[in-house]
């Protein structure tokens, strides 16, 4: 890719789509986000803003700040994915009155689990930002 800015733009688009998707599931489909979903939202929503501003003003530092959020989100999403996959015993998490984090299927996408989508988005953003930063030396 000749223009590294395109990488930054793609990272922003992934964050924007993920933010819109999370808001769609929450506000339109009225699914209540579980605890772990909330942590991933906390990492994802600022990415849509920071990367948008970074793209707009072609600011390399935006990518640095965004990368830290993306890696944090990827860690949360990775943990959540392992939990959904059953690789982390559910007994580690106490039961609470809230929404179960252990099963988050999305019926409009054939029961695809939401944390998988989240993990894909965070990893994609992290990789795109990583390559963007490597191609744009300070």
């Amino acid at each position: 890719m000749k223009n590294p800015w395109t990488l930054l733009l793609m990272a922003w688009l992934v964050a924007l789509a993920a933010t819109a998707g999370a808001l769609f599931i929450g506000e339109v489909m009225l699914r209540v986000p579980c605890q772990l979903c909330w942590y991933q939202r906390i990492f994802m929503f600022p990415l849509a803003l920071i990367l948008g501003m970074a793209c707009f003003s072609e600011d390399r530092r935006g990518a640095v700040y965004a990368l830290s959020l993306a890696l944090g989100g990827a860690a949360m999403a990775g943990y959540h994915t392992l939990l959904v996959a059953g690789l982390i015993p559910k007994a580690w998490l106490p039961c609470s009155a809230g929404v179960s984090c252990a099963d988050q299927p999305l019926d409009i996408l054939n029961g695809l689990q939401i944390p998988w989508l989240s993990l894909i988005a965070f990893v994609a953003i992290s990789l795109l930002l990583f390559f963007f930063l490597r191609k744009t030396p300070q």
Partner: peptide
């Protein structure tokens, strides 16, 4: 053109939502 691209994509995502 980059700034216009950012606005255009934002509009597309909002419309799709």
């Amino acid at each position: 053109s980059k700034k216009i691209t950012v606005f255009a994509l934002l509009a597309v995502v909002l419309a799709a939502f």
